[in-house]
Design a protein around this nucleic acid. Structure first.
Lengths: 129, 129
DNA sequence: TTTCAAATTAGTAATGATTACTGATACCAT
DNA sequence: ATGGTATCAGTAATCATTACTAATTTGAAA
């Protein structure tokens, strides 16, 4: 029941916090493996889920079928590059009145929303025509 | 190369078109099976993918790990009930200036967005307190 | 500091959604 | 009617994720 410290969990959390992009469980696994050569993928998943449940990480589903993890736990929007698939945070305020707009003529109750933006990232813009 | 008619594909398309909700591949499978008792799940997936690629259906990923299919192919937002998981279309115009808002201070190019709204559907609102 | 129950781990097996493969069948232009 | 090819049913494979288990860590109390 009580949460106990674990070096693995700490390393996983540290790693995600150093990243600006949004690593997948497998990417976390590959990297934490440099410090803990025989950590198992299951341990990575279990701790990522645990940290997300505790609110220390954000579990992200941008629609490519893989879960990503984000150390920026405040609500924010995401950009997904259609060329390279990279995921970036967008630093604009959440549009709360978007909920009201969307709720016009809707009989249920809207409490929140999430949004993803698509296009070309700065890198892909300069690389190709 | 050339597309050939198939009774199974037609039945799959017909079924999705009659539905207001957003059936998963398995739900399509269960229902089309009444007309084609030994249709295979692979056939359902192949045709749903094919129809989506042709633009006759929309493949939806609302973040619950299952793909859903939507016969309403015009761009629109979706509502997901946090109680029962049901998915509904929202009939409000797409907010195109949302792209501009989100792009403030962003170095890439934003071309489109998708959004999901969360809360309680009309049914769940009246069922419980 | 030793002890010991409980939490965590590594390793592996299981699950669930989706895709790929294969030999048989259905479609359709000739 | 026939032949070429798209599609099918059935099944195996893949991929991300979760569950299981015996062994190891952790931390608080003796």
């Amino acid at each position: 029941m009580a949460l106990k410290y674990s070096r693995q969990r700490e390393a996983i959390k540290e790693f995600v916090m150093t990243r600006e992009d949004h690593p997948t469980a497998d990417e976390v696994y590959m990297n934490v493996r440099q410090e803990f050569p025989n950590i198992s993928l299951g341990t990575v998943y279990r701790n990522l889920t645990l940290l997300s449940d505790m609110g220390e990480l954000l579990r992200l589903r941008v629609g490519d079928g893989v879960d990503r993890f984000d150390a920026a736990t405040h609500p924010h929007y995401h950009f997904i590059c259609q060329e390279c698939g990279s995921v970036e945070d967008l630093n604009v305020p959440i549009m709360d009145d978007f909920n009201t707009h969307a709720g016009q003529g809707f009989k249920g109750q809207i409490l929140s929303h999430s949004a993803q933006f698509y296009g070309k990232c700065a890198n892909c813009l300069k690389t190709n025509s």
